[in-house]
């Protein structure tokens, strides 16, 4: 039995983070509620963050695109902001489960669940996103490239909460490709995102190809051939075999999907 908390302000949320050491945060709940049901997590309190107005905002300024921690994946997809360099986020969101879950799941939840195969994570990494957090005594900014520690493990403290994910202004084109068994239902066997900047710099990121999502930058498409880029990228990942796919299948698929991402973002450059 846990208490249900639904603060309406960040200050109230801070208060609960401080006073409730065994607290679980609830955004979309698509992972947490399964854990609660199966007894994998046994918090004293569950804190719903969706009543805090600041967390429900999507905002684009000259410099950044900000997505509040309570914004659902479907709201992101409908926002109109996920084009151009942010298109990989759109493609990843479209690939995330099905509409029933996209109406609940959030970007911040996908990040904080820290699954190596989380669909939104490779796109966030190539776009060099960071999260902003609050704690009882302040808050901080954490680049996602320094966020993931291992399967389902991240650097957040137990009294820390993500309030938004921030994407710096980007230029160029991005794409995400995913291999799964059943559309609408399966987690990624492999997911690959790429961002090609206007200057020819290429960043690639891989989901389900190591203990954390892996980001490899920066390739130079002006001086490196596609074969060189592919070989270097495949040397940078370390997939394992598990219930979803064998190691060999993941290696093949990572190469194939990387080519598909390059096809999508390179256009006439190929």
């Amino acid at each position: 039995m846990y208490a249900f908390l639904a603060p309406k302000t960040l200050e109230d949320a801070r208060g609960f983070l401080e006073s409730r050491p065994n607290l679980k945060l609830l955004a979309g709940g698509t992972d947490l509620i399964i854990g609660l049901r199966e007894g994998l997590v046994t918090p004293d309190a569950v804190m719903d963050v969706k009543q805090i107005p600041a967390l429900t905002q999507i905002r684009q300024t000259e410099d950044v695109l900000e997505i509040g921690a309570a914004v659902t994946v479907d709201e992101m997809l409908r926002s109109g902001y996920l084009s151009g360099p942010y298109h990989a986020l759109y493609e990843a969101g479209e690939e995330l489960a099905n509409i029933l879950l996209r109406n609940r799941a959030t970007l911040a939840g996908n990040i904080c669940n820290a699954s190596p195969g989380g669909d939104m994570l490779p796109a966030c990494l190539v776009l060099d996103a960071w999260v902003e957090t609050i704690r009882p005594d302040g808050g901080r900014r954490i680049p996602l490239r320094e966020f993931f520690m291992g399967p389902k493990r991240h650097v957040l403290a137990s009294d820390e909460m993500v309030v938004k994910t921030v994407f710096p202004r980007a230029a160029g084109k991005s794409a995400y490709r995913k291999k799964k068994r059943i559309r609408g239902h399966d987690l990624a066997q492999v997911g690959v995102a790429g961002l090609l900047g206007a200057d020819g710099a290429l960043t690639l990121a891989f989901g389900a190809c190591g203990p954390t999502p892996i980001c490899l930058d920066v390739f130079d498409t002006n001086t490196q051939s596609r074969a060189e880029i592919l070989d270097a990228a495949m040397n940078g990942i370390a997939p394992i075999g598990d219930v979803r796919a064998s190691k060999e299948h993941r290696q093949e698929m990572a190469r194939y999907l990387t080519e598909a991402v390059l096809d999508a973002i390179e256009e006439v450059r190929v």
């Binding site: 249900f4 509620i33 399964i34 049901r37 719903d48 239902h185």
Partner: peptide
Amino acid sequence: AAGECGACTVIYNGKPINACMVLAMEAD
């Protein structure tokens, strides 16, 4: 009861969702 099958689909504030994936308290 794990957000996989859709048998518990209801329309929640205008959007279809799995009712097994929402806490009752959230529905206040």
